[in-house]
């Protein structure tokens, strides 16, 4: 095998990360992510647009990563944003939180802080009262992982 320096670094880093998390810990799989999304949407296909997910490009500390979601939508009794689910694809459990809004929210905007185990994609799915779904995702680079220890 032609082991270049770069390849070696990649391999050794991922091995180190695996050791850090105890080796045996399973991270969420693509199936789990898709299942979490389809459980939330009831099988509906999420579209892009309307939903904005804001995360830092680089998070120094995975223990506390600010995340904010905004959905451009009127918030009236018959047309509003019901909920927004946030998933972290490579955390041990992909679910992060689900926000539930109401017409009394005035604006579908919320933020919190989450834990990220490593560099990964963060996905948000919004559920509208009219049965539509929207999805957005961002990649966050994590310097120090935020679970275990």
């Amino acid at each position: 095998m032609n082991l270049t320096r770069r390849k070696f670094l990649t391999v050794s880093t991922s091995a180190a990360v695996a050791t850090f998390f105890g080796g045996s810990r399973a991270f969420a799989t693509v199936d789990e992510i898709n299942k979490a999304i389809s459980d939330f949407t009831g099988g509906g296909e999420p579209e892009s647009g309307v939903l904005a997910l804001k995360t830092p490009e680089i998070a120094e500390n995975g223990n506390s990563v600010p995340v904010s979601v905004t959905v451009e939508s009127p918030m009236t009794d018959d047309d509003y944003v019901e909920s927004v689910m946030i998933l972290a694809e490579d955390n041990p459990n992909p679910e992060v939180a689900t926000f539930h809004f109401s017409p009394a929210s005035g604006e579908a905007k919320a933020s919190t802080r989450m834990r990220l185990a490593k560099t990964q994609n963060v996905v948000a799915v919004a559920k509208m009262s009219n049965g539509k779904f929207y999805k957005a995702s961002n990649n966050v680079k994590v310097t120090i992982g935020g679970c275990g220890g």
Binding site: N63, V96, S105, K109, S111, T112, R113
Partner: peptide, 13 residues
């Protein structure tokens, strides 16, 4: 996956 000392910011009308 929510950080210690959970913080929430949201809107209300």
């Amino acid at each position: 996956a929510i950080s210690a000392n959970p913080y929430f910011e949201f809107r209300a009308k």
